[in-house]
Design a protein around this nucleic acid. Structure first.
Length: 649
RNA sequence: GCUCGCGUAGCUCAGUGGUAGAGCGCGUCCUUGGUAAGGACGAGGUCACGGGUUCAAGCCCCGUCGCGAGCUCCA
């Protein structure tokens, strides 16, 4: 037993301290300024409270506001302060969990009556009092019996205690009157929380299990300074303004109507134009990359989905069966398709295949229907009628890797090179509900993972997130305001080839089983367009803009001259319109800006005499450019051809 | 699907039991303008739907449908 321990600091220096020294004491030893700024400490890579005694030689880093880990400590402490306030106002409330999350924190409570917005205001006021009291956060380690005694009136905490392993340290934290079962760490005292705000309350299942009771969750956000808090609140505001449901209405892109049903998009002409351009683009591109296009029916005999394993594995997501068509045999029923894979497999199986043909890549922009639970629907981003840019690649095992790289390259070309979107990859492993043996899953997962590893691609892992027939690489797109959406996906499948008895004749003149790769690049037109709306806030690149040019005659007597220019633009394939309404020029320019038209071509007497237009480029304000009509046409065509992200330039 | 909230003119929203409102948009007319809202007049409502309470319901109660915030689930 030794009384002295070594503390290794990030600058490489080593200091001797008596055992039981706290990080705060180390900080004080370094300097009073650091001690004042200190919030927590990183001890051998683990974040600790400042005042937790250190009993052995460690490496130690003092955390202040400047380290990102400190923000989690702040937010988790804010959750405790929230619970402290709630317990004061609602002594009978049972407490669940209260973690830090991205941009904030939450805490779950079991209460008689859900919280109202007024309740939140009261709770927030009480939190400020708890902060004012500056209660220290006091850590204490207890044994199981003691923990059960302390939380005897808190069934949710008792349940958690029961699950703790015998070798686990049970710690409790107190801040003033409130004691919580918690691993920590926390700020030194409640007074260190300054800039926070409660945002909203909503129900959340206890332990995330929908079979269990629903708790009331309060969400909040917390930051180290006012500027960060304000910036975050502005970001939320910004997100609201970019909401595709709002912009979709303003720009007349789409609607969802009760008469049609939830989760089904009516694409108005302007929205349809965007989908049309996206579709033309991806179809041209995949043809260039060696795919073939196919078209398959929307409904099929139900039997097909039994064969594929969709029924019953995927039944919850499928619409119920429809009766047989007139004249069909007894017992035949039909289903609308939730996926295209079985049909593409049948296209493959329609004749004998040779290894010389592989890989066979079948692509189809297809409508499928999934019976998503009503509560999950969300504008265009989560719908029941989906338009997938689907494809299935049938290849040999040797070809898997190259095909995956081909898909990743296509995804990068479309998402990043063309739309400027940032994304990251997730590797998703076998789910609980699956078909096929673990041996085959091992092979499939290894193949996908190997491809990622060999190319040194960085990826995250989503355990159990795979499709029921195979593991996936999902591509998550980060939008302009930092939120992530899943779009593109690559799924490796050994199961359906088996179930559909797919074969090819190998070089050895013997039958072999191909593997199947399912992939989508946009994912679905609905989600992708919804995402683009939010990403560009409705100010689309010229090539997908529903209305590329709006020609505006200054006076009525120039309407026909404007119409001539409009006609020229249309003839060369530019989407143009004329606004010759009897409104002021100011009014019409404003309208063009609001509708996010990339170019307004204003035509006055001077322009007509000189064969020019006065071009106003979206978002550039008063600055206008007078140019010959020819030059303008050429400029717009170049923008379209190059798929420029912005109409300037 | 679950919890809570919401549903009033084409849109955004006022309206706390006693004769349905505003702004924008739309129509007509006047105005003919040089880069983000010119003026006048007018049309437009089964207050989501179905029940109930009340002398009286947009408003209170119940149910259904839809939407929203989350949870769960997913492209």
């Amino acid at each position: 037993m030794t009384n002295s321990i070594s503390i290794n600091l990030p600058d490489g220096s080593v200091h001797e301290f008596p055992a039981g020294t706290t990080a705060l004491q180390v900080a004080e030893n370094i300097g009073a300024g650091l001690a004042r700024a200190a919030l927590a400490a990183k001890v051998d890579g683990e974040v600790w409270d400042l005042e937790r005694p250190i009993s052995e030689t460690v490496s130690l880093e003092i955390l202040t506001e400047r380290q990102p880990e400190a923000l989690d400590v702040l937010r988790h402490s804010a959750a405790h302060i929230l619970a402290t306030a709630v317990r004061q106002l609602y002594p009978e409330a049972n407490i669940g969990f209260g973690p830090a999350i991205e941009d904030g924190f939450y805490y779950d409570f079991e209460v008689e009556r859900p919280f109202t917005p007024e309740d939140l205001a009261t709770i927030e006021d009480r939190m400020r009092e708890v902060v004012k009291e500056n209660f220290p956060f006091v850590r204490e380690e207890v044994d199981r019996d003691e923990a059960e005694r302390r939380f005897k009136d808190d069934p949710l905490k008792l349940e958690r205690i029961e699950e703790l392993g015998d070798d686990e340290v049970i710690s409790v934290y107190a801040d003033g009157p409130f004691v919580d079962l918690c691993r920590g760490p926390h700020l030194p005292a409640t007074g260190r929380l300054k800039h926070f705000k409660l945002l909203h309350a909503a129900g959340a299942y206890w332990r995330g299990d929908e079979r269990r009771q629903m708790l009331q969750r309060i969400y909040g956000t917390a930051w180290f300074n006012k500027k960060d808090l304000d910036q975050y609140l502005t970001r939320l505001e910004e997100a609201r303004k970019r909401d595709h449901r709002v912009i979709g209405k303003q720009l007349d892109l789409f609607s969802i109507q009760e008469d049609v049903g939830p989760g089904q998009i009516l694409w108005h002409p302007r929205g349809a134009t965007i989908q049309f351009e996206l579709r033309r683009f991806i179809e041209d591109e995949v043809l260039r990359r060696g795919y073939d296009l196919v078209y398959t029916p929307h409904i099929t005999k139900e039997q097909l989905f039994f064969r594929s394993g969709h029924l019953p594995m995927y039944e919850d997501d499928q619409f119920p069966a429809m009766a047989a068509a007139a004249g069909d045999a007894e017992g035949v029923r039909y289903r609308v398709k939730p996926m295209n894979c079985p049909m593409h497999a049948l296209v493959y199986a329609s004749r004998q295949r040779s290894y010389r043909e592989l890989p066979i890549r079948l692509a189809e922009v297809a409508n499928v229907y999934r019976n998503e639970r009503s509560g999950t629907l969300h504008g265009m981003l989560r719908v029941r009628g989906l338009t997938m840019d689907d494809a299935h690649i049938f290849c040999t095992e040797d070809q898997i890797e190259e095909e995956i790289y081909g898909i990743l390259d296509l995804a990068d070309f479309v998402l990043n090179k063309t739309f400027g979107l940032e994304y990251r990859l997730d590797f998703s492993t076998r789910p609980e509900k699956k078909i096929g043996s673990d041996d085959v899953w091992d092979i499939a997962e290894k193949a996908l993972l190997g491809a990622l590893e060999r190319k040194n691609i960085t990826y995250g892992v989503d355990e159990g997130g795979g499709a029921f027939y195979g593991p996936k690489i999902d591509i998550k797109i980060r939008d302009a305001i930092g939120r992530e959406w899943q779009g593109a996906t690559i799924q490796l499948d050994y199961q359906l080839p088996e179930r559909f008895g797919l074969e090819y004749v190998g070089r050895d003149n013997k039958p072999h089983r191909p593997v199947m790769i399912h992939r989508a690049i946009y994912g679905t037109m609905e989600r992708f367009v919804g995402m683009l709306i939010e990403h560009f806030a409705g100010a689309f690149p010229v090539w997908i803009s529903p209305e590329q040019v709006r020609v505006i005659p200054i006076t009525d007597d120039l309407a026909s001259a404007a119409s001539d220019i409009h006609g020229r633009l249309r003839t060369v394939g530019i989407r143009s319109s004329v606004d010759d309404r009897s409104e002021t020029l100011n009014y019409r320019v404003r309208d063009g800006e609001i509708m996010k038209v990339p170019y307004m071509a204003v035509v006055g007497k001077r322009e007509v005499e000189n064969g020019t237009v006065a071009v106003r480029v979206r978002g550039t304000g008063k600055k206008q450019e007078i140019m010959p009509v020819d030059a303008f046409v050429e400029r717009v065509l170049r923008q379209i051809r190059e798929r420029s992200l912005s109409p300037t330039g």
